[in-house]
Design a protein around this nucleic acid. Structure first.
Lengths: 238, 238
DNA sequence: ATGGAAATGCGGGTTAATACGTAGACTAGT
DNA sequence: ACTAGTCTACGTATTAACCCGCATTTCCAT
């Protein structure tokens, strides 16, 4: 009866990780048995430490949260996964829940909410932050309409993603064609297909979409670095 | 000699804030005298609590860190300000230091580094994370070349920013002209001036820049989700 | 007051992007 | 062998974007 609940923290921001540990250790029946700074470490840590629940960030180097969740749920389906992130977008929520997350809570939650969320997941329930559950409910009421965007995205082929990435980086069709050894006409076709599939109607929208998708500049910190996405490929020298 | 150093936490992510409090309270001579979730609250808290040092995030609602630092240093120049953020971009570093920050540390720093940074600022020194000081030195060696982007941005007029925002939202010139009651030619001119000033050469680059600058309120998913404006309250546990 | 910057607007011209239709080559699955 | 999907590519046409110079008005600061 004295056994503490074993918690694993997966979070790349060291200070937040240590802070969370300090916070959770104050709770009588919680025990932080380990920490990991990315998805790969997390999987190793689960094998070794067999925690009951994992608190997981989504945007991390090496292996991101979504992939990690998928792999963890494949190998250790009994482990509860509570996503702890700052991302409010339906994109992340949808992907996380689809990957098998048992809860989704925001980093601006309170201490109390975190505890409630952890206990919910420990007892087998699914916990969503109020903001998050609003979105989920709204999509549910809308008949999963916005899931159509996720569906549309899955219909985008890898070649098209490649083109999308370069478009978002500011490359002109001519540059993309040269870089990928294609005809401009082909690039235009890919671009046109992208816009049709995603229901976007110009280069700006494609760029905003790609950035939101995280196609540019791996980590979230440099996602808000104005100079990060603007690579020097516009020079045209390949 | 038993007086503890008075610390104020300014950070919008509640969990990190509480975690930091728990962390810093473990140090003998540190005392967290207050917390604030944005710049406006921070200024009020300083007036009331007169801390020696402020740990401040940069990206916050209501009033962001940069503005807050400027105002705090105007009114309470004796208060040390240590920026604690996840942003590694020269943009933020430059702006923060220019506004008067006494230190700049990243959220993936360790517990020990945080303590060292706080003590450095308390003793009147300037502390920069190793990664950060590297960048500062590099820019210094390059003769401040990359500060040119920050300078360029300041030369962008408010009307141009307005146009930039709409361009990044995917609006065509015609739409922008109608919305702002302008001639298409004028919009084209603003757009052209923006591209010249910022050294960007098409709509995609403008969009990426604007998103990096945080000119767009919503994320990409809500940008392509027409129903994203609706909100409703709902209980957390489902 | 007078110069400078900002905002607005036009003309003329070039280039790039977008829309739409068509179609061959290739791959993978049935 | 047949089918479906993707990647590739072209043609044609329209629209939007981009570049350059110039002019006007307003407003602010020296």
């Amino acid at each position: 009866m004295n056994a503490k609940h074993r918690i694993l923290l997966v979070e790349d921001h060291t200070l937040l990780r240590i802070g969370l540990r300090a916070l959770l250790c104050q709770i009588q029946d919680f025990e932080v048995v380990g920490e990991a700074a990315n998805g790969r470490e997390a999987i190793g840590a689960i094998k070794e430490l067999s925690p009951e629940i994992v608190l997981m960030d989504l945007t991390m180097p090496e292996m991101n949260g979504m992939e990690a969740i998928t792999q963890i749920k494949e190998r250790y389906p009994q482990v509860g996964i509570l996503v702890l992130t700052l991302h409010r977008s339906e994109e992340y929520i949808h992907e996380s829940l689809k990957a098998g997350a048992n809860g989704y809570i925001l980093k601006d939650a309170t201490h109390e909410e975190l505890c409630i969320a952890i206990r919910s997941v420990l007892s087998g329930k699914t916990y969503l932050s109020p903001d998050i559950s609003n979105k989920v409910v709204r999509v549910f009421l809308a008949g999963g309409k916005s899931a159509s965007l996720a569906f549309a995205w899955e219909s985008v082929t890898s070649r098209e993603r490649q083109v999308l990435k370069m478009v978002a980086e500011g490359c002109a069709n001519k540059i993309i064609a040269a870089y990928l050894s294609l005809s401009i006409k082909t690039v235009e076709k890919h671009r046109s297909n992208l816009m049709r599939k995603l229901d976007l109607h110009n280069a700006s929208m494609l760029t905003a979409f790609a950035i939101g998708k995280g196609l540019l500049s791996g980590d979230s910190s440099s996602a808000s670095d104005p100079s990060a996405g603007l690579v020097q490929r516009q020079d045209g020298v390949i």
